[in-house]
Design a protein around this nucleic acid. Structure first.
Lengths: 122, 122
DNA sequence: AATTCCTTTCTACACTATGTAGAAGTTGAT
DNA sequence: ATCAACTTCTACATAGTGTAGAAAGGAATT
């Protein structure tokens, strides 16, 4: 999968944190004033649109062209994306089980429990 | 953690696949003829040395300066590195458990068993 | 129909990381 | 002191990303 730059990532965060589709302007404002990671970025709308186009090309974002200010939304949930990234890392290892062992070894007890629960219902 | 380019990654693979420390020349040869991922790369030794320096700066590689052709080895095991990468991804998510759920959901039955085993002995 | 305003697309440039390697410098051996 | 091997320095090309103005498109309004 393609990797994301910092601004691209911030934009995705805004989209992931929003239930509904957003315009470039909405995103611009969120990046400027929103509580999220993009704290304090004063960007031109064209900048946001450029980034959105790139994200669209990378299939991270879906664009509704029929709405007049185009509406953008994440094509995948954050959780799905993150999980895929993790699988990508894992897939690059010849010794997958060793990696899993290390990975689980460093997980907090709370999360170890979560994992057990998840694995039980499967 | 810093991210690795393709050649950097190939060099790390050579080091990870080797039990003992290697010289730049060794690595160069492995990349050229070795079975690993670097298939068929005909590189100048200086190129390999540059990459090794960069990897050293990123703390991926340890250099023994007292040996005359310097000896290089991976500072971390591949499994540890991969596990750390996975934790890094996970750490960037606000909804960690959701990510874990997705992740485990896409794991093969064989690996699910491995996970259960690992979690049991913990 | 022409104008205007909003929106999108095109074009452009700077900066960084990475791949790549020759030139220059260093050092141990003869 | 010289030579050969090795390392470090310097340099350039390419690609990805951040950034945004200029140009173009389209819809409402006069």
């Amino acid at each position: 999968m393609a990797t994301l730059g910092e601004l691209e990532r911030s934009v995705m965060d805004v989209l992931w944190d929003s239930t509904d589709a957003l315009t470039a302007g909405d995103i611009r404002d969120d990046l400027a004033h929103g509580n999220a990671a993009g704290v304090g970025k004063e960007l031109a709308v064209t900048t946001v649109l450029t980034v959105l186009s790139r994200l669209e090309a990378k299939n991270f974002v879906t664009r509704e062209r029929d709405s007049r200010p185009h509406l953008f939304s994440a094509s995948t949930s954050r959780a799905a994306h993150m999980a895929e990234l993790m699988h990508e890392v894992l897939g690059a290892a010849p010794d997958r089980e060793a990696v899993l062992a290390r990975f689980v070894g460093q997980v907090s007890p709370r999360e170890a429990d979560a994992l057990r629960r998840i694995l039980a219902g499967k």
